[in-house]
Structures are given as structure tokens and as C-alpha cells.
Design a protein around this nucleic acid. Structure first.
Length: 482
RNA sequence: GGCGUGUUCGUCUAGCGGCCUAGGACAUCGCCCUCUCAAGGCGAAGAUCACGGGUUCAAAUCCCGUACACGCCA
């Protein structure tokens, strides 16, 4: 079977973490089976849908490296055999199928107003009956219909749901789930505005786009029996379904803004790598039987399997994501790292041909970075005025004897040739020996004086890169403050 | 309210009747390495497998019920 999956977001905001994971699974499944991954825009919510949201979603997907084979590249063109990929441009198609159902006696106009339906719902709740459309307009005569039309009412169109029997959803993640048809209500398939409802458009599009596997969030499981009835009524074979568990915040409620960053793009600006993001997201609700954590390159695609999906919801854990990002960052070769870190360095005012070269200082600190934002933070002291951290000043420099040590070394190192790692180490260790000082009594103040910090790169490598002028100058300057 | 789904260390999870005195990963703590910070290595702590019944020689694993959480109807 030629696998075709899709991601079908509503463009009513940015792409959030949960949606990104759903997309990722669809993408992985398609790639795993050499299938096709489609992007479709479900913009039938005319009030809340915006083109900005579409662009934000596309940007997020591009950043994550989730490329789609069909879908909205240029909404003016919308090329492709199943185009257009915006639902609002496919209204005719939905309306055609509504008419088809009406002609077959499987759908009918409903003239109930929103207020009437609300009232019925309230009544049902008060009487503790199931909340469900009672079929008031189900069997109106033509005459009653024309009267209602004449009174100015515009109908919505409802699908006549069968009353008897059961509908079984054979889900690839959750197994066989059955629903009583009695509890399914006559679904609105076309709104009074002429637009389709979500469940109807979804079925029509999935059919016409020849989707073979619908991989989506758990919240749609309860809609699936109704959709299955629609497939049946239209004479179409339904796709396979896989319902994914939801993503929760640390307090166990649905992941939302109050739990921190939920937009994919926020993770981009926070300095995460797309590959790490993909790896982490994949593991939220999916695992291999050996609980493997890291999948580099195409390994994720090779390993992905719907059978490994978890039924219960997962809590998003930023700490683990950060650990994983560090793993990916360390594995990058210097060129790749520079490419990824470039924008972050530039934002910190570090770009172009600097002395010492950025590649050299970045290389020195690569293994310690977890986030791309760490990169400028760890190397900026090479280039900027030394800013003394409180810990460095009070904890290291303002100690008896430090001033003399700094001054002595400024003198000694001023004549050192070549000013390189090994000779530097030799010279400074010799100085410790002559003065009878423990190495730590000297190393720490030198580091603090030259970087303003108590932590940083390996000392002699750092001094060598800094160069003689800066080292001597900084040693003197620091001594001057004491 | 009805229906549906879920419930294994703080978190992500392995587990599909005996290999489980429950394994791995993150986080936490300790030790080692060490010029600092990381990384790395080693180790510790951490889960009466939501609870209660059953089935079975044997249950985290199968069945029933309860509780709680979430979702859908909205």
C-alpha cells in the first residue's frame, strides 16, 4: 500500500508543541514507509483563521525539518493533483457531497436556531438525559420546510445517524473501541453559512486526498464513530486510524501557555536544535522496546513504529529536552555548530572576522553548551570588556596576595615567546614553584582576572587565544582594581 | 450528565502470564577524573506496578468493580 498521511492544522495561532508532535508522527510514518506526507489547511473557522498563522505553522515545520510533499507552498498556485489544500477553497466539493447525501435521504435541513438548541441542551441536562440533538427537524414535511424557509430561517444540514447497532473503531494505537450508535447524534455537516463542519470536511478531504492513515490527537477519538458513519453513507472506504495520547503540563492539565513556552518557534529562539527537538518529541508517547533515547540522522525514521505508541498522556519535560540538545550540540562538527550558532552570536554582537577567530573560541567551549544561546554567553568575554562576576571578584580576586601574583605574572608573561598553550602552562607552573604557591592559588586568580569569571575554558588554551596583549593588559587592569 | 480513553520511580518509558527481589533515560545525590565550569566514568537513592476483588500452580501483565485524570457530546 502506498502510504499517505497528512497534517491538517487550523490556522488560528502558532504551531504548538502538541501539534508539532502530531505532525512529526505523521511525517515519520510517511517517511518510514516511503509514503507521501500532505499538509492541508483547515481554515473553515472564518473568524479565527489568519494567513499569518498559516505562515507561522509553515515556518515552524520548515525549522523542524518536516518537509511535506503536497500542500500549500504558494496559495495562489496550490499546485498538485488534490489541490487546493485550503478548505475554504473547496466549498463546492463539500456542498456537492451534502447534496448527494440529501438526495439519498441521508441528510436533511435543520431549522433550529442556536438559541433553541441551547435551550434543549439545558433542558436535557436538567433532566439528566444524554445531551443530544433530538431530531426535531428530522422528519419535517416539505410544506413545513417551506414555511420555515418563508419565515426567514436558514437551514443547517444534518446527517441522519443510524439509531441501531454499534460502531467499532479499529485504532492502531488503542485497539478496538466500540460506540453505541444510539448515542451518536445527527451531525451538522453544513453550517447555515454554507461552510462545512470540521467532521464533514475532514472526511471528504481525507477521502479525496486518498489519505491511508489518519494519525491525530486523542481528542478526536470520540468523533471517529460519526466520521465512520459518514464514510459508510458516502460509500467510501475509511482510512486506518491512530489516536495519539495528549501532551500535558507538569501539573497534569493540558499543555498550555501557563506551563511555559508552547510555541515551536519559541524553542528555536531559545537555542534548541531541530534534530534534538524531533528526537525529544518523538519520545513523548513513543518508544522502542529497548528504551533507546538518542536517534541521530535518519535513525528515527528507521525505528518509528505506531505499535510503540503510548496510550497514556505524557508530560513535557524541558530539562530532558535540554540534556538531549546538549547531546546533539556536542555531536555537531565545528562548521555545523558555527552555522547553527551564527545568528545567536550575531545577536550578541559577535560576527565577522574577530580576534581571536570565533571558530577557535567556540570550539573551546562546544562540549559545555546545552543551548545555542550558551555559545555567545561562554565566549563573549574574549571580545568584550571584562565584566567581573561577584563570585570572581569577592571570592577569588579580593584575597591577600592576589594583586602581587597578577602583577608578577603580567611581567613574566610579557616576555613569553611563543605565547602558546604549552609554554604558558610551563611558565605559570614555574612561577608557582618559585613562590611556593599551590597551583590553584594562581590559576583561579588568573582566570578571574582575564575572564571576569570563575568558570570557563581550559586556562592555558584560553590565555593563548586571548593573546599576549589582552592577557597582560587584563592582569594589570584587574590588579589595579585591588 | 452520558459515552470514551487512560493510571509502572518526580518526569519520559521497558514490560504483552513465570526471565520482575520491576529494566533503561532525564532530573537529584555521592565518588572518580580535573586548573574552574561542563562533559565523561562509577555508584546511590527513587515505583507496595492507582485501589479492591476475582481467574490461575503463578498477574504489573487476563477479567470485573471503584477512585481519580483527561477527552468528546459543547
Amino acid at each position: 500500500m502506498n502510504v499517505r498521511t497528512r497534517f491538517a492544522p487550523s490556522p488560528t495561532g502558532f504551531l504548538h508543541i502538541g501539534g508539532a508532535r502530531t505532525t512529526l508522527y505523521n511525517w515519520l510514518f510517511a517517511r518510514r514507509h516511503q509514503g507521501v506526507f500532505i499538509l492541508r489547511i483547515e481554515d473553515t473557522d472564518e473568524v479565527r483563521s489568519t494567513e499569518d498563522s498559516v505562515q507561522a505553522i509553515l515556518d515552524s515545520m520548515r525549522w523542524l525539518g518536516l518537509d511535506w510533499d503536497e500542500g500549500p507552498v504558494d496559495q495562489q498556485k496550490d499546485l498538485g493533483p488534490y489541490a487546493p489544500y485550503y478548505q475554504m477553497k473547496r466549498l463546492e466539493l463539500y456542498q456537492r457531497h451534502v447534496r448527494e447525501l440529501v438526495q439519498a435521504g441521508k441528510a436533511y435541513p435543520c431549522y433550529c436556531t442556536k438559541e433553541e438548541l441551547d435551550a434543549m441542551r439545558k433542558l436535557a441536562m436538567a433532566e439528566k438525559r444524554p445531551v443530544r440533538y433530538e431530531g426535531r427537524c428530522r422528519d419535517l414535511t416539505d410544506r413545513q420546510r417551506s414555511e420555515l424557509e418563508a419565515s426567514g430561517r436558514k437551514p443547517s444540514w444534518r446527517f441522519r445517524m443510524p439509531d441501531e447497532g454499534q460502531t467499532v473503531v479499529d485504532d492502531m494505537v488503542r485497539g478496538r473501541v466500540s460506540f453505541d450508535n444510539k448515542l451518536l447524534q445527527d451531525l451538522v455537516i453544513q453550517k447555515t453559512t454554507g461552510g462545512p463542519t470540521y467532521n464533514f470536511a475532514c472526511v471528504v478531504d481525507d477521502h479525496h486526498m486518498e489519505i491511508t492513515h489518519v494519525i491525530r490527537g486523542d481528542e478526536h477519538l470520540s468523533n471517529t464513530p460519526s466520521q465512520l458513519r459518514l464514510y459508510e453513507a458516502l460509500g467510501w472506504a475509511p482510512p486506518c486510524f491512530a489516536h495519539l495520547s495528549m501532551l500535558l503540563g507538569p501539573d497534569g492539565s493540558k499543555l498550555s501557555k501557563r506551563h511555559g513556552a508552547t510555541s515551536v518557534l519559541e524553542y528555536k529562539t531559545a537555542g534548541f536544535l531541530p534534530a534534538a527537538m524531533r528526537n525529544y518529541l518523538a519520545l513523548l508517547g513513543w518508544s522502542t522496546t529497548d528504551s533507546r533515547q538518542l536517534f541521530f540522522g535518519d535513525e528515527l525514521i528507521g525505528a518509528f513504529d505506531l505499535a510503540g505508541c503510548q496510550k497514556n498522556p505524557a508530560v513535557f519535560d524541558r530539562a530532558k529536552l535540554e540534556w538531549m540538545n546538549g547531546e546533539y550540540l556536542r555531536k555537531l562538527d565545528l562548521r555545523e555548530l558555527m552555522a547553527h550558532a551564527g545568528p545567536f552570536l550575531a545577536a550578541a554582537g559577535l560576527s565577522g572576522a574577530l580576534t581571536p577567530p570565533l571558530e577557535r573560541t567556540v570550539a573551546l567551549e562546544q562540549e559545555k553548551c546545552k543551548l545555542l544561546t550558551d555559545v555567545p554567553n561562554r565566549v563573549d568575554f574574549f571580545y568584550k570588556e571584562v565584566a567581573f562576576a561577584e563570585k570572581a571578584m569577592a571570592g577569588v580576586l579580593r584575597k591577600p596576595g592576589v594583586k602581587d601574583i597578577l602583577l608578577d605574572l603580567a611581567g613574566a608573561l610579557g616576555g613569553l615567546e611563543p605565547f602558546e598553550e604549552k609554554p604558558l602552562e610551563g611558565a605559570i607552573r614555574d612561577y608557582c614553584g618559585q613562590k611556593g604557591l599551590k597551583t590553584s592559588q594562581v590559576f583561579h586568580p588568573v582566570r578571574a582576572a582575564c575572564s571576569g569569571r570563575t568558570e570557563g575554558p581550559t586556562l592555558f588554551g584560553m590565555l593563548a587565544l586571548l593573546g599576549k596583549d589582552k592577557v597582560v593588559g587584563r592582569l594589570r587592569a584587574a590588579a589595579g582594581l585591588l
